[in-house]
């Protein structure tokens, strides 16, 4: 048994697209892969035990916290959490707050997850608003792992971010990239409608001015939307409204390309042959840009970490979300962020 400091991850088992069993499977695999990570499964005990009974796991690193309430995907977060004080996502956040777990993972309702964090966790001193970050595959590798993913934040938690919020997001993204992507000196950029410093709404211009002179960050200026897939910056900072629109558009483009490929495959024998010849390369791209290795999107800015796994996450993504959360906890992400914030620490 490893003597490393044990880290407990609370998993909100309920409300995911593939059901509780898939989340339990992912958490169970985590107990086999990582000797210092414990899984605290929060949800309906009957469903959890039914899944656990039939899958390999290490019971020494699994605990169950029963609740019969949870928030479904279609429910309105605020109303649902008011109606269900014992909802699994809220309970998981509470257990993290009370120190029963160190971080939390959920593949359920995103809004409920963010709200549960806001109700239970406290913001890091110097951070006014939290940010939801996500990774996006790019053409450039970065960090020790030659990681092709850049980090974009915020993609939906804070719709009306101020200049100070954008600066805090830049700090949070840098800290996260340093710890999770093992990128010692990640480049940070503001997403705007031009690369010039004076381009964009006043809050972006003001944030640019603040970031330009900030120690501890490698701010490379503004970038445009086209630079995101190119991988021009390791950390892309924007407000939640812009980030969410941008993310959905990138997802839409990706889906459209897939549809076009399918169409081409059906339409002409020559095109089909060409696609078949490229299949090895396409598979490789799929491997390299596999988002499941990141497990999900972190909510940054709170003193505790929440990884929001995709609703349709399979077990592997859940396992990796747990690993990412444990890594962030083990490297004291919150403290790293606090130290990097202007006027807070050394850096």
């Amino acid at each position: 048994m490893s003597q490393a400091r044990p880290v407990t991850i609370a998993f909100d088992v309920m409300g995911a697209d593939h059901g509780a069993a898939e989340v339990v499977r992912g958490a169970a695999q985590l107990t086999l892969d990582s000797p210092n990570i414990h899984a605290l499964l929060v949800g309906d005990r009957a469903q959890i035990d039914e899944a656990l009974a039939t899958i390999r796991h290490n019971a020494e690193r699994v605990a169950v916290h029963h609740t019969s309430e949870w928030v479904a995907m279609h429910e309105k977060p605020a109303a649902a959490l008011d109606d269900k004080p014992q909802a699994s996502v809220l309970l998981a956040a509470k257990l993290v707050k009370e120190g029963e777990a160190d971080a939390m993972v959920s593949a359920g309702n995103t809004g409920a997850g963010v709200l549960a964090c806001a109700k239970s966790f406290t913001l890091i001193p110097g951070v006014r608003r939290a940010a939801l970050a996500t990774v996006y595959p790019t053409a450039v590798g970065r960090g020790e792992k030659n990681d092709p993913f850049s980090l974009i934040l915020d993609v939906g938690a804070t719709v009306d971010a101020s200049a100070a919020d954008l600066v805090a997001f830049a700090v949070m993204g840098t800290a996260y990239a340093r710890i999770i992507s093992r990128n010692k000196d990640p480049s940070v950029a503001l997403l705007s409608n031009g690369t010039e410093a004076q381009k964009g709404p006043p809050r972006v211009v003001e944030a640019h001015e603040k970031l330009k002179g900030m120690a501890g960050l490698r701010f490379i200026g503004n970038i445009e939307g086209v630079d995101i897939p190119k991988g021009t910056a390791d950390v892309v900072v924007c407000d939640g409204f812009v980030g969410n629109v941008c993310l959905k558009m990138l997802e839409g483009v990706s889906e459209t390309v897939m549809e076009l490929a399918k169409y081409a495959y059906k339409e002409k024998l020559l095109w089909r042959a060409a696609l078949a010849m490229l299949s090895g390369g396409i598979e490789r791209i799929k491997e390299v840009t596999d988002w499941e290795q990141y497990g999900g999107a972190p909510i940054l800015g709170f003193n505790r970490l929440f990884i929001k796994a995709h609703g349709r996450s399979k077990a592997r993504a859940i396992t990796n979300a747990g690993k990412v959360a444990a890594k962030a906890v083990g490297n004291d992400l919150a403290m790293t962020i606090e130290k990097l914030l202007p006027g807070r620490g050394s850096s």
Binding site: M1, P6, L52, A59, E60, R61, V62, A63
Partner: peptide, 18 residues
């Protein structure tokens, strides 16, 4: 002798209960 702790022991106990 084997690095067990409160977490692993209490989890083992709960496993039997479940």
């Amino acid at each position: 002798t084997a690095g067990y702790n409160l977490l692993t022991l209490s989890n083992s106990f709960q496993d039997l209960l479940r």
